[in-house]
Each structure stands twice: as C-alpha cells, then as structure tokens.
Design a protein around this nucleic acid. Sequence first.
DNA 1: ATTAATGCAAAGGCTTTGCATAATT
DNA 2: AATTATGCAAAGCCTTTGCATTAAT
Lengths: 149, 149
Amino acid sequence: MMHAHLSPDDCRDRLQAVGLKVTHQRVQVLQELSATPTHPTAEALFEQLAQANPSLSLATVYRVLGDLVEAGLAQRLNDQHGRRRFDANLAPHHHLICERTREIVDFEDAELINLIADYFRRKPILGFTIEAFQLNIQAERSTGVTALH
Amino acid sequence: MMHAHLSPDDCRDRLQAVGLKVTHQRVQVLQELSATPTHPTAEALFEQLAQANPSLSLATVYRVLGDLVEAGLAQRLNDQHGRRRFDANLAPHHHLICERTREIVDFEDAELINLIADYFRRKPILGFTIEAFQLNIQAERSTGVTALH
DNA sequence: ATTAATGCAAAGGCTTTGCATAATT
DNA sequence: AATTATGCAAAGCCTTTGCATTAAT
C-alpha cells in the first residue's frame, strides 16, 4: 500500500475515473510518481521522464501534478527547503526526513499514531479543534543497515 | 518563555553576545520577532516595522533574519505554502497550525513529547538514527473559547 | 579610521500562465 | 469536429545579492 507502483493501465483507469483526459504525459507522470517513494519534486520527475520522452516539458509536469492533486490522485507537500514535493500516497501519513540526502520517506506506524491520537482525546487543546497531525522525524540513514521501505 | 518579548536592551545584549554589530535595524527586527508569536514572514515583520521606520528595506529584514538564524538567535521554518517564517523561540518545539487563518503558534507539552520520545526509545526505526521530531497539528480555532498562549 | 551593515535595484530560484499547436474524446 | 492538453517562452512570486552609501566600532 505504501508506494503502489501503478501500472500504465491502473493510471489510465484512475485518470478516467476522476474525469481527466488520458494523455501520455499524465499516465507517465502518475506512474512515475507512484513508483518513486521519495516524494519527488516536479523537476526530479521531469528528469526521470525526460530521457524516455525528450519532448516532455517541465511546465507540463507541473501542470499535470497540479491536476492530479486537484483530482485527489496525489498530495502536495512542502519540504524544509521550501520546495514543493508530491506524493501518490493519499492516506494521511507521516514522514521520515533525512537532512543529509534530503530524502523524505513515508513513515507509517499505527501504534504510534494511535498513541498520539489517544493523547489528544484525553487532553484536548483548549481553544482548538484538532483536525489532523503530522509527525516529521528528522533522521540520519544509518550506514550498513537495511533501510526501511 | 514561549514568546519572550525582549526589551530593546535585551536585544542589544543578545546581539552583542553573539558578536553581531548592534544596529537599529537588528534591534528592531529581533524585538518585533520576539513580540510576534505567530511565526511571521519577513514581509510581515517588514510591514509591522515600516510604519515606524519608513527607510527600512525589506532586503534588510531578510538579511537581518538570516543573520539572526546563523547566530542562533532565531529559527527558520517553512510553512505549508512554501513561505519562509521565523521564530525567536529557540527551543525545539511543535506547532499548532490553523489552515484557515494561516497562523502558526507554538505548542509545548512535555508529557506528549516524552510519550513520543519514549516510544522511539522502545521501538527504534530500523536503518535510521532519529535526531529530532516535530509534530505539526492542523487545528481550527474554536469560536468563543479562550485561545491558547 | 576601519570595518561592516544598509538601501536600492537588479538578479535568482522555483513555479505558474498565455498562447499557438497538437492530441484526445 | 470540438474540446482540452501540451510545449515554449514569458511572467510572477518570494528571496537573495552586488554595489555604492551610511553607520557602528
């Protein structure tokens, strides 16, 4: 479930389901995004795709990503350097951030999330209604150890 | 401790302590930042100060804020819209974010933070060394109820 | 007097947009 | 055939930077 690796046909189906015209560019951007777990920037996706599609334009990647977000097929987030990043994982979730490599990978741990949610249920914040929360974990990749995902 | 409302003299002392020349602009930016709990942008600070200092330049506000961050007198953060915001609260801390008003206010709750830190101590994340974590809480201001801070 | 900070304007990233062309339904 | 997306280039927004002037030590 974490990064779904959609097939081209999956992508076409999803685009159609939300009423977006099924173009090559949209299929490819959605597919590449679903296959990239590191929350890429538009530029990163563009570079990954440009090799196979020399005529692809960065503006199109930005526009397609905007369309996907608007249609609910992707999420947008801002990293610590102010750059926009994208994520095909639609569920609200948390992030592990490596400052050194600037990677952002999903972090899902139901136990921890429940722990926090329960805490807020017990101790609400006066004057606010909590709608969601997001935990960003600054971490350094340990060397020589199997990584997550 | 949360937003310290530094006096002009406090500001001068702190600037001197870190080896920054004590200029009007730096004193004013630091003072205004310390008095603004909502994590203002450079532009917001500029507008708050420009009335009293018509000759002040936005570039100077950006530069002073950068100096303060470098000197460890302020923190920089990026909001969800990709804009840079500043905070005179130096302690690592957490944020309550109102999407509607775009406010960001500090959230400090030792019990919750310990709960999370303890959890990570019990269940480390394979392949990563955790350096810090930050909890962002999306919340809506409740009407008619006393707000935090 | 020396050294560094300011203000202005210009340049710099990253992202969005206008418009003619090309592709989808 | 009608409508919408694409590519290109140009504009936009926020932030940083170069340089002559002004201020702090």
